[in-house]
Nucleic acid binder design. Structure first.
Lengths: 351, 351
DNA sequence: ATGAAAGCGCTAACAA
DNA sequence: TTGTTAGCGCTTTCAT
């Protein structure tokens, strides 16, 4: 027994100790600790004194075991250090804290295996609910079981394949469309699309939106202008070079996420050109470059809040059919997306 | 009773249910679940089947209550969405996950009151240990009590005033010195210092380092070149303007953190000048501007790992006197810090 | 190798 | 208003 190994002085006071010292029963102590009304002033006083003296603090493990409510929420994202998810994390935290619960957080690191372990740990901890960004390629059977066992879940950023639960997404397709149409509105016809691996739900959707915008506005969709692969600087450099060598080269770029945007900036510098650009997903300091980067902003905080809202509804017993909420995007013009068709060639000194 | 209100179908299976179905005692089930050796193959088989059939998952609340070990760590930072702390968070998480524990995270939002509530909640949850960035102005008495009650704590980024516990810090003073000396080495004598409120431990230390570097190298320390206040763009603009109007104006700037750096960049643009600059604290995309921002990088991951190391030592019963570990910084030259004394005036088109 | 039983600290029902 | 007590689900002796 872990606790009893310790010297007596390091055993934390229990409700029993308090009761004994205060000269009341444990029930009374419990009532005082939980601020229940039907206790005499004298008892309250005595209990408070004892608590103060003993440095008593309720043991929530015992409380949880007894009541069955853990007042905790589990959050699994791809990486808590990723700006997008850290913002989501914070928004969820604020909701969780507001209702007096605690938040267990973890990062999947894109590993389905790590995700499974973490989620199952959360389930063993009997979290009241789970907010999950599932890594690509996850087996979902275990989720179905836990979900069926009564743990409410809401999925964020990407939809699950099999679990029938609430989902919160960004309107990736619509947002991409919005961004590309912005470029078209500024006169661009030949627009490159640089984005992440097509295996990723979000990347796929954004390419779809890119294509839709082009077709919608009567422009040709040229697959050779789409780079959808693991983002690496060299590849992007090469790819952009190839596109620029086209007989009808791009005058603008749609970057599918901010890593892509950064690489495109690098590639443009190396090629000594400055194409118009709109990037999906806002980022801090998008305006310290000249021109500032025009972005299609997602709303990570909004996603977090919405996820918690949906979760809370389930916690209150809602049996409504699973809902998928899609949050809109916001285009923030900062300069790069409003550049004219005639490309600007940077003076050498500033490249 | 919360649990028994629920329909029978939604009550999760317990160890008893498994035992009954498998035709063994609860002790045996427990042994199987925990992978203890002394169980017959037949029992293991039967138990596994029952577990599978019932969708049994151990209830950690009960386990925790019994064993007294929560296998959880509480982390309180200023804001989980802040890049510095989110990196620290992730590093801590990885250590925590590696040893099979869970991580409770929360943001103080610079509020001593919120911090107190959160920390006391963690204490009620009986976390095994606590990693804390305490907001400026916190009362620490409650921490002393909890610490004395046996909850190990390590403080990160800023030292506590009263609690005698382990601390992990960045060498703010040394780092600032390193940055300023880098500028001096590139010929600068007149160096401005733009940083946050002097109430903040880190800002204060960095100003100290700035002063030390100047004095060490025989340069005068001119208080009128130090701006240490709440960082707002307008103020920084005005302040820089005033400094530039000096009879012996600055040729370089030491920015005390990355918010300061961004504002200095803005101010320089507005004043149509480009001074050399070194900024404290690295940031993503510090190299997408031209020139890239030379920074004195901290090591948030290293701090997280170190904090967990110290915590684990305490968890294993170390009674050594409290240690303060100071992590060194790393200067990353990217261009802005290597600019010569002769200021560059940007061509208008690029301002 | 295994079952029975005590008990972790708490809450809530019940009795007084 | 209050004390007593059962029991939440688990681990861990102690017999067998």
């Amino acid at each position: 027994m872990t606790r009893n190994d310790r010297p007596e002085t390091l055993r934390r006071a229990t409700i029993k100790d308090v009761a004994r010292l205060a000269g009341v029963g444990v029930g009374t102590v419990s009532r005082v600790v939980n601020g229940m009304p039907e206790v005499s002033a004298a008892s309250v006083e005595a209990v408070h004194n004892a608590i103060e003296f003993l440095g008593y603090r309720r043991n929530d493990s015992a409380r949880i075991l007894r009541t069955g409510a853990t007042e905790s929420i589990g959050l699994l994202v791809e990486d808590v250090a990723d700006p997008f998810f850290s913002l989501l994390n914070r928004a969820v935290e604020d909701e969780v804290v507001r209702q007096g619960s605690v938040l267990l957080t973890a990062s999947s690191s894109k590993s389905p295996d790590r995700a499974r372990k973490l989620i199952l740990t959360f389930c063993s901890r009997r979290v009241d609910g789970l907010i999950i960004t599932l890594p690509e390629g996850s087996d979902e059977d275990y989720l179905i079981r836990e979900h069926a066992a009564g743990i409410p879940m809401v999925f964020v950023d990407r939809p699950p394949q099999k679990v029938a639960a609430d989902v919160v997404l960004t309107d990736n397709r619509g947002g991409a469309m919005q961004g590309v149409k912005h470029l078209i509105a500024h006169g661009h016809r030949r627009i490159a699309c640089i984005t992440d691996r097509a295996e990723l739900f979000t990347a796929r959707e954004r390419v779809n939106g890119y294509r839709d915008a082009l077709i919608d506005s009567g422009n040709p969709f040229d697959p050779s202008f789409v780079f959808s692969a693991a983002l690496e600087q060299e590849q992007v450099d090469t790819m952009l070079g190839r596109m620029l060598a086209d007989s009808d080269p791009p005058t603008a770029v749609f970057a599918g996420n901010n890593r892509a945007a950064v690489m495109v900036i690098g590639a443009m510098r190396r090629h000594g050109t400055l194409l118009a650009m709109v990037a999906f997903d806002d980022f801090e300091l998008a305006d310290i470059v000249e021109p500032g980067i025009t972005v299609v902003a997602q709303d990570p905080q909004g996603m977090g809040v919405m996820a918690m809202d949906l979760l809370c509804a389930r916690l209150q017993g809602s049996q409504a059919p699973p809902k998928t909420v899609t949050l809109g995007t916001r285009l923030i013009p900062r300069g790069s997306g409003e550049l004219p068709v005639s490309g600007i060639h940077l003076p050498t000194v500033l490249r």
